[in-house]
Simulated scan of single mutants.
Amino acid sequence: VVSIQSISKVFTAALVMSEKGSVFIQEKIGVNATGAAFNSIVAIEQHNGSALNPFVNAGAIQTTSWVKAEDSRERWAKISANMSAYAGRNLQLNELVYDSEVNDNKRNQAISKILDAYGRMGSDPLEATTVYTKQCSLNVSVHDLAVMGATIANHGINPVTQLRVIDAKYTPKIMAVMAIAGLYDNSGDWLYSTGLPAKSGVGGGIIAIVPGRFCIAVVSPPLDDFGNSVRGQLAIKYIVEKLGLNTYQ
């Protein structure tokens, strides 16, 4: 079991997309690669306050701020319930991880303040940053990640519970952003090698989706310089090659 970390960004973006539509994500947050580090402040200024996509920290915090809620408690309840629906079970908060990260998130707080100055935030910036930190601290197993990714692969229906979690019209949009920015600054090389939309997290997890079929999930914490699981990438690339899963082949 590990904390979900940045893989959570996929499912909160999907939640906001369900509430506000895919055009909102495209126009308000963006769907382009940043060409900068995942926690870059400079990238926001260079693009007139645009986060560019919901999978860098700026875009993820902004996305969290736009979840429809009256306050932070309701926002957190909706986000955690949404991710639990993807997993098919109630996911639990890792209090130790959360306590550590919430006391060391000054850079993310700065990012949220800059976005707020540009009028990009949907709620109080510091509150949104705290909720974002909490969503990254949910515990998941590799089985949870596989089911969560498979729900997207299965056009929005959880393959375990058979419940629809998101409208099928949104899953191609989510996978498109995963292809663009799912593995931080290494997203282009990843797509070039595998042809699969994927998302990684610094907890060591990776989900790689074979559209319409299934999800490959891996948890292996040692990370490369980009923040992606070293062995996880190798394992998925091996499976893709052996089973001929590259979507461009």
Rank of each mutant, 00 (worst) to 15 (best):
K169S: 15
G227V: 01
P197D: 05
I180N: 07
I61P: 01
Y170K: 02
W66T: 00
L96P: 02
V67T: 00
C215R: 01
T133Y: 03
V160P: 03
S8W: 00
E241K: 14
I29S: 03
G21Y: 11
L191C: 11
R75K: 12
V147M: 06
F214I: 09
Q233G: 13
S80V: 12
R75V: 00
R120S: 05
T194G: 00
V142W: 08
R73Y: 09
I44E: 00
S80D: 08
K242Q: 15
A33P: 04
A198L: 02
H155Y: 15
L245A: 01
L115H: 09
S187D: 09
Y86E: 01
G182V: 04
A60T: 03
R107Q: 12
A60L: 07
G195H: 06
S84Y: 08
A13P: 01
E241F: 08
Y192W: 13
A146T: 06
S18I: 08
I236M: 02
H155T: 12
R107V: 05
L96Y: 15
A60M: 02
D104T: 12
H47M: 05
Y170Q: 00
R213D: 10
Q62N: 08
S3P: 08
I152L: 15
I111R: 10
V218M: 07
A51H: 07
I7L: 08
P125H: 06
S72I: 04
C136L: 12
V16R: 05
A235V: 12
G244P: 10
